[in-house]
């Protein structure tokens, strides 16, 4: 690419940055705080309920996850979860409910393309990377842990 073209593009991108309206970061942060806080509090209520029902800590946490995932997927099917995210932004993306939304959404959307190549493949379009890199990073962490154990 010619040098003056690079310069033109750089200037143009800087100019675009300047004229493009930005969402109010403060307002979006408040919304994210309320949404994320609410979802986590629901999680805490579930956790508390399962613990009171006599489950141990790990089982209570697992049941909490199951309930949050189920709730999120029902709201996804009813087309309510996207409305929550369009208001709450990261507030409903960051919790495990956002992960569940990312699994259910393509499953519903790609049903038209068939069981295997539609739902079966596309169910992982957004969640697949999360699973892959989660497993990979924990595997690396595990190797490092194993090495330190052998060393010590």
């Amino acid at each position: 690419m010619a040098v003056d073209e690079q310069k033109r593009n750089k200037n143009y991108n800087a100019y675009v940055e300047q004229v493009t309206p930005k969402a109010s970061c403060l307002k979006n942060c408040v919304k994210a705080f309320i949404t994320g806080g609410t979802i986590c509090t629901i999680g805490q209520v579930l956790l508390w309920t399962f613990k009171n029902a006599g489950l141990n800590k790990d089982d209570a946490a697992s049941w909490t996850t199951v309930c949050l995932v189920l709730g999120s997927i029902i709201l996804t099917g009813l087309n309510i979860y996207p409305l929550i995210t369009s208001w709450g932004g990261a507030g409903s993306l960051v919790p495990i409910t956002g992960f569940a939304n990312s699994v259910a959404a393509p499953a519903i959307e790609y049903k038209a393309e068939g069981e295997v190549f539609g739902i079966g493949c596309k169910i992982f379009t957004i969640a697949g990377p999360v699973i892959l890199y989660g497993i990979f990073s924990s595997w690396i962490a595990g190797i490092l842990y194993l090495l330190t154990k052998l060393w010590m």
């Binding site: 949404t35 994320g36 990261a90 993306l93």
Partner: peptide, 13 residues
């Protein structure tokens, strides 16, 4: 839970 969960979401936002 509300405050900590909310704050994590704010950082990500």
């Amino acid at each position: 839970a509300f405050i900590v969960g909310g704050l994590i979401c704010v950082l990500v936002q």
